[in-house]
């Protein structure tokens, strides 16, 4: 949490470039390869999570300030509940088949 006096927003530009790389990477994996469906989903899903983490750290500065830890715990726990809801629903609604 610094007050910038002058300079160049390095992290922002870096984050933006990495986002673009990850987005087009996912696009390439999804449409230009002939991997099995589940493999593709795992790869592009992982890329999405990396990109989300990138946004949270490089753009949103999730861990800055006196409540950085609270923010981080909060976001991670929210994400875990979301994962439980998604994975749990898919599993249960498949009737466990």
């Amino acid at each position: 949490m610094e007050k910038h006096k002058n300079g160049f927003p390095v992290t922002h530009v870096l984050g933006f470039i990495m986002s673009l790389v990850l987005t087009f990477g996912a696009l390439g994996v999804a449409l230009k390869t002939s991997l099995p469906f589940t493999t593709i989903i795992w790869i592009i899903g992982s890329l999405a999570i990396i990109q989300a983490a990138l946004q949270l750290y490089m753009f949103m500065h999730m861990n800055e300030g006196e409540d950085g830890t609270a923010n981080t715990i909060n976001v991670i726990s929210g994400f875990l509940v979301a994962v439980v809801a998604v994975a749990g629903s898919i599993w249960v609604m498949s009737f466990g088949m």
Partner: peptide, 15 residues
Amino acid sequence: WVFLGAEIILFGTLF
């Protein structure tokens, strides 16, 4: 931030 935590779960449910 806490509200965003709730939003993560809201969108998680939609997903």
